[in-house]
Structure formats: structure tokens, C-alpha cells
Design a protein around this nucleic acid. Sequence first.
DNA 1: TACCTTCAGCGAAACGTTTCGCTAAACGTA
DNA 2: TACGTTTAGCGAAACGTTTCGCTGAAGGTA
Lengths: 348, 348
Amino acid sequence: MATIVDVAHTAKVSIATVSAVLNGNKFVSEELRGRVLKAIEDTGYHPHGIARSLKNGRTKTIGLVVTDVTNPYSTAVARSIEDAAHAEGYTVILCNSDEDFGKEETYLGLMRTRRVDGLILAPSGKPEDYRDTLEELRMPVVLVDRTIEGLDLDAIVVNNLEASRQGIEYLLGLGHTRIGAIVGPQHLSTSRERLAGYRQALAAAGLTFDEDLVCHGNFRHEDAYRAGLGLLRRANRPTAVFASNNLMALGILRAVQEIGLRCPEDISIIAFDDFDGAALFRPALTTIAQPTTEIGRMAVDRLLAQLRRQAGNSPRREVMSATFNIRGSCGRPPQAAAAARADEGSRR
Amino acid sequence: MATIVDVAHTAKVSIATVSAVLNGNKFVSEELRGRVLKAIEDTGYHPHGIARSLKNGRTKTIGLVVTDVTNPYSTAVARSIEDAAHAEGYTVILCNSDEDFGKEETYLGLMRTRRVDGLILAPSGKPEDYRDTLEELRMPVVLVDRTIEGLDLDAIVVNNLEASRQGIEYLLGLGHTRIGAIVGPQHLSTSRERLAGYRQALAAAGLTFDEDLVCHGNFRHEDAYRAGLGLLRRANRPTAVFASNNLMALGILRAVQEIGLRCPEDISIIAFDDFDGAALFRPALTTIAQPTTEIGRMAVDRLLAQLRRQAGNSPRREVMSATFNIRGSCGRPPQAAAAARADEGSRR
DNA sequence: TACCTTCAGCGAAACGTTTCGCTAAACGTA
DNA sequence: TACGTTTAGCGAAACGTTTCGCTGAAGGTA
């Protein structure tokens, strides 16, 4: 491989001059610039990013640790991050923690070794896991999707509590009083907030919170499927279910179909996180959609702000708004629907 | 940041000795090893991967260029590649070409600058685009999903022709004779092969190929949706549609729902590429599934083989087998179904 | 003419590693 | 004792850049 030395040699100039031409940060006469450009062409020289990084002390790389690239929410955010980063000249290294803090830690170590300039992280551990882990990395960090209690870091999240409260209120408005919830691990801010929204909505409606209606899972398809089976096979099953993320929604849906319930006639379903096929289910799934593109863009923005050590740079929590997509998967609860029909019949 | 020099200094040994301890490739006495380990602890030293890469001439990084991380097929493969690569000590840099060759080229250049050790690529350009592009990179390359005609490179693909032929044969067996196809850009091997499978199946059944039944799209949701609308609003519309990938399947499905056709009663649908929700559609989508995990693993295997310059290393095309998932989205064509019902009625 | 200023271009150090080849101590053998 | 052999540990070069500070020519001014 041709190096800058070869270029300098064939152009009969110094290495410093070639560097000046390459970086365009110093005045070089037209004549020499021409010779250098030609020499670059002739030698087939391509800059050595590694050597450059070593000298400059920055890699123009950002590390992205998500919990699962297979989850459409994660990919959508990752996609947006990659685009935004690339537009600013940064490359992205992508890793999956699989909701496993051990794995996450390994990857964080890797990021340090690779000397990424900054990190965008969807943390999967408990707050105490991060006591000094992140401090010790000594690099700009932006959290995404989830915050870590007690750590003052930039974080891009969504208004989980309000959004899920709104969803539950919608179900309550339809007449549901027994609403099941499939929620994620409670050490994650996201899971806690979504459950809190559920509780607030119930409380506001004067309903008592029934622990039995809440199933705890791991944000995965399989867990929610099993939880759903358990929940829906009960004698006194709920008339609606709130799924705390997209994968869990799929699990619940599978349980519904397997048991042979009709949606929304027998059971209403509402899910946090939208995804590409959600509108195409029969009935189309009612969802709470996160603004994934904006989340990704904002995460990169905040990270770059840290990298540039800009003013007004104290860590802050950026709360984006989720959108509520009412589609077809929620209806009135069976008794209420029957009553309404009877009512309508009597009026005729 | 502490460097190896600081470690050497506090351990009162030479830099070379610290390096020897770190890499474990030379004998170091227990005493010195102990002192070095302690010094590493005390100084909080973490190896500098960039400096290491510069010296070693390899980055332990592989570049992955896919067409769209948002496509579940791509993510599944990417996921598998990342896992396999990580298990071998490699890190993955992920980029999206968006089916845009210009963008792809930019990313390939970036990969060269970053000095990735090897490349896994889902090419989006025409064969002639790659005449010397890939040669010039002078690094191990493995193609994935698509091959490039005329270039002798490792490639991991699926038996597209046979798989789609099998799908079409299935539809023919159900009695369909007017089968629509939504296919991708014909400069891609994948698209061509899938269309060829369609044609072969028709030919074998003695049906003439009708160009009007084939819509050309861009492997994207939107294109297929519009194409689907056009196809299904015709007076003499097909009784079945073959979608050439998962995103196109979603597009077609949307068109079907919008027009208000029932599936499978009015229209049968079969799609290349499986995805997480496919079984949960109502009716569940019949699909041709690619072994994404194996594809990813194999891609990394072949790349590592090239990196190790192993024997038996001539480039080869690895053809994996797709699986046919018969679910509920295909039925008999409307007339045939009516005839069958009549037939059954007369026999009673 | 003599001196000062400007500035294009260059030489060399530095970034943090790995590794080659050397030194000198320790040991075995005659 | 004298010599050769082994080997733990070290010094220094090298990887390919960027950049600081220097040189010397050119131009301006008195």
C-alpha cells in the first residue's frame, strides 16, 4: 500500500506538504498542490485512518450499544443514528447487549479499547451496575430509550408514563375495567414508567390496582407469549391487554390466536412501539409509536455537542412525545358490547 | 490516559516486558508478571487498540454493508454476523447502502480508510459497477444475499430459483393460473433468479408467461403497494400474487386490504423472506424463509478463511436452502373454489 | 543598500504500540 | 577454570500520520 511518503517522494515534495494538501488547512502553491494531487493519483494512495487516528487522538467513530438489533424499534433508532452520524463524518460500531449486562460490559470495554469518540447506549443493567462503569470509560455518553437513576447523563427518552396512561385511558373509555399488562423488567426506567402510567390511569378512574393482572417478562416475544397464555386462560380473564413493547405485542397476539380468541370482540390489545406491519394485522394493531428518527437524530446531536464541548452543555434529559395510533385492535369489552346491542335492540 | 510506558515505569520494567505480559506470547518470570499486573491495576491502564492496529497492520474489524438495516432479513443476517464475528474477536462496522450504489461506494471507501480487515457486502449495483471497485479495495470480500456476475468472489446465497419455483408450483397446484409477481430490480442476481423460478414453474405447467402480470419495484414497501394497487384493480386481476421479498409483501398486503379483498378467498399471497410477525397476520402469511443465522455465520466463516489464507481457499458460492412455510394466505382461486363447492354439493 | 516582515515549504518529533536483535547473567560441560 | 549455550529482559526501530517550529527566499520600507 502506498503511503504518504511515497506520494511525497513521487511528487518531489515533503511529507508535510502532502499532508497540507490532504487536509487543506494550510496554504500550498498551485504548482505543488497539482504535483501532489497527481502523485496521489499515480501511486493509488488512500489515507490510513488508523495512523491518522493515532496522531489526532480521535477516531471519528461512535459506539452504539443496543439491546437487540432484531427489534424494529432498535433498528429504526440505529438506522437514524447511523445516518446522522455519517452526515457528520462519523462511523458507527454497532453491538447487541441482548439485555445482558455482562455482555454490555464486555462491549463497553471493547469500545474503550477501540477508542471510540463517544457512546450511545441503551443500558440494560440496574442503576447500581453503573455506579462507576460509565465514569471510568471517561468518554462522552448519551443514553437512549432508558435513563439510569442517579446518574447525571444526557438521555433521549419518550414520555413513557403519559403515553401509556393515555393508552389505558382509551381502554377505560371503551368500558374496560379488567386490563392486563405485560411489562418488562422493573429495573429499567422504561418498564417502570410504563407500568406507572398504567397504574395512574387506573387510579384516576377509581379502579384498584390488581397485581394479578400484571405479568413480568423480558421484553421478548417468548416471555410475553407464555404470560399471555396464562393470563388469557383464566376463568376471569381480562378484557384487554396492554403490551409494554412491540415484541411482547407479538407474543400476546400469538397467545390470542392460539387460544382462539377474537380481537377485538373477545379481547382488546394495545401495544407500546409501532412497527412496519402493525397496521396490516387483522385487525390492525393499535399502538403507541415512538419517534424513532427524531430520537436517533437527537442522540447524535447531543453526543456531538459533548464532543465539541459546546456551551450550555450540562447533561439533560430530552423527552420526546409518543404518538397514539388508534387502529382496529381495541373495542368495547364483551359484556358492554352485548349490553349496547341489547340497548339498541330495545330502542328499536 | 495511562499508557504502556506508565505501566512499565511504575512496575520498574521495560516496555517490552509489559507488552510481553499483555500478549502472553513470551515467557516472563512470575515476579515481573506480578509487578506488571499490579501496575496495570494501579495505573488504570487500558490497551490502545488504535496504536496496536497501526503496529500490527490489522484492525480486528470487519465492515458490513447491507442495503437496509430496517429490513428484517438484513437485521437477522447482521445480527448473526455480529455474533459470529464477536466470537472470533472481531468488531463490526455497519453501514446502509439504501440500494444506492453511490452510497455503497462511499462506504466502501470509508472501509478502506478505516482499514477494516475484511468486508461482507450485499451489493446493490450492476455487475459492471464492480469491474474494478472491489479489486481495488485489495481486501478480503464475501458477498451475501447477492452475487456479482463475472466476479469470482466468495458468496453466500440461497437457492432463489428453486425456492420461488416451489412457491409458484404450490400456487399452481391449488389451481391458480393467473399469478402476479412483484419483483425487484433485475440487475440484482436475487431478483433475476426469483423471477426465473416463477417463469420456470409456469413453463413447466404449460402456461405462457404474461409480462403484464409482472411488476417491477425496488424491494421497498411503497413501490410494491402502488404496484399491487395497479395489479389488483384490473378487471382481469390475478388470483394470486408472489412478492419477491418481505417488504414487498407488506406493500401488497396493504393494497389488498385497501381494495377490500379477502385473503385467501379472493386473492392468495406468497412472499419471499419470512419475518417475525408473518405467522401472526390474519391469515398467517405463507412465506419462503431464508436461513439467516446460517447465512451470517457462513459469511463470517468464509471471511475468516480468507483472512487466515487457509488452504482450499478458492472463492466459492455457498448456496443455502430456503424453507417453505405453508400458512394460511394461499387458497384455491375463486372460480375453482366455487366449482369445488358446487361439486361437493352435487355429490351430497 | 540594509534591515524587517511575510510565508511557502520542510525536517523531525510525537502518537502508543509490537518485535527484532542484543546483552548479560546463569547454567552445564569438559 | 574456561568455554559454550540458554534465556529473561531490555533498547530501539518501526507502523503512517499531523504539526510545531525552523529556514531561506521574496518583497517592502527607510
